[in-house]
Design a protein around this nucleic acid. Structure first.
Length: 103
DNA sequence: CATTTGACTTGTG
DNA sequence: CCACAAGCCAAAT
């Protein structure tokens, strides 16, 4: 059974080390799906709440979370990331410090 | 099969 | 730095 794109994306996300983050575009690229950043987002949007996938390590290319700052989802993702040692500055993450581009 | 949608990205002002 | 537009492309409707 050939892995679906969704499975490839999930595998890539699983490989992101704690304390690091990756953008949608890079996740897509590493999953062998260039220019499919939006598809990655769509897959994540379909994740069940009890999923074990570290979806919180995927952020957008602006170094920000893809949720409105006042949403509960935003707060949750940010809390987890901070637990993993990621430092926020004005609702933004410094990609130069935390971006993971593979091993 | 045509159209809409979306947890995106990049460029422009 | 913020806002908006255009580009992009798979999945859903």
């Amino acid at each position: 059974m050939t892995p679906s794109n969704q499975e490839r994306v999930w595998q890539v996300i699983h490989s992101i080390p704690s304390g690091k983050v990756c953008t949608y575009g890079h996740v897509a690229l590493m999953a062998g799906l260039p220019r499919q950043a939006r598809a990655v987002g769509k897959y994540l949007s379909q994740l069940p709440n009890d999923s074990k996938i570290p979806w919180h390590r995927v952020i957008n290319a602006q170094g920000k979370l893809s949720f409105p700052v006042d949403s509960s989802r935003y707060d949750k993702q940010r809390a987890i990331l901070q637990e993993e040692g990621i430092f926020f500055t004005n609702n933004k993450i410094k990609l130069s410090l935390y971006l993971w581009l593979g091993e």
